[in-house]
Computed example of a mutant assay.
Amino acid sequence: MNELTIKRLQSRDEIVEAYPIMKQLRTHLDEVTYLELVYEAQEKDCYQLFALKSEGEIVAVIGFKPMITLYYGRFIWVCDLVTDTTKRSSGYGEKLLIYVHEWAKENSYESVALSSGLQRVDAHRFYEEKMDYDKVSYVFKKSL
C-alpha cells in the first residue's frame, strides 16, 4: 500500500531535499538562491514549506504564508505548489492544498488564495474545476 505523509520542512537537509521538485516550478532558482530565499521568507514572512512523501520520497511540495489585507482579510497565500512532473494527476497537489485549507481553518484564517502563471492552463483547470477556486483577479508585476 502507498503510504503518504505530509511533513513540514525545517532543517537545511529537509529543505534541500525538496529542491529538485521545487526547481520544476521555480526553474530560475539555483540551490543556493533557493535556500537563501526560503530562510529569509521563513524569518520575515512566516513562510512554511511542506512536502508530501510517498513511500519516503518527496512527490509534491507546497509553500505558503499567512497574510492580512483589506481585500482578503486574514488569509493564506500559497506561494508555491508543485508535484513532480512524473507523478502528476495522482491527487498529490489536491492532498497538499486540502492540508493547507485545514491548517488555515485551524489557525482562524478565512480563505486561501494563490496566483498561477498565464501559461499554466492545466493548473488553472485543477484550481477551478477540481479544487473549486474562483478566478477573482489578475496579478500584475513590474520589474524594477
Rank of each mutant, 00 (worst) to 15 (best):
D84Y: 06
E94A: 11
L96T: 07
L96A: 06
V78D: 02
E102Q: 13
E94N: 08
G63I: 01
R88L: 05
V59T: 13
C79Q: 00
V78Y: 00
E102V: 10
I68P: 01
V78M: 00
M67L: 11
G63C: 07
L97I: 09
T86L: 13
W77P: 02
V100N: 01
V82K: 07
T83K: 11
A104V: 11
E102C: 00
G56M: 03
A60S: 14
Y72M: 03
F64K: 02
W103L: 11
R74D: 06
S89T: 08
K95F: 15
L81C: 14
L97F: 12
I68L: 12
T83P: 11
S89I: 01
V78F: 03
R74P: 03
I76G: 00
G91V: 14
S89Q: 14
I76K: 03
V82D: 12
G73K: 04
F75K: 01
C79T: 01
V100T: 07
Y72E: 06
R88T: 15
W103E: 10
S90L: 09
R74C: 00
K65T: 05
T83H: 08
A104L: 14
D84F: 05
K65N: 06
M67C: 04
K87N: 12
T85H: 14
W103I: 10
T85L: 10
F75G: 06
P66W: 04
P66Y: 05
L97H: 08
F64Q: 07
S90P: 10
L70W: 09
Y72P: 05
Y92T: 13
L97Y: 11
V59Y: 02
L97M: 15
Y92L: 12
A60E: 04
V82R: 08
H101S: 03
V100C: 03
V59L: 08
Y99S: 09
A60T: 15
I76V: 15
S89F: 03
K95C: 12
E94M: 09
C79N: 09
Y72S: 04
C79F: 06
Y99L: 05
G56N: 06
Y99M: 09
V82F: 07
S90N: 15
P66C: 03
T83N: 09
V59N: 00
I98R: 15
I68M: 10
E57Y: 02
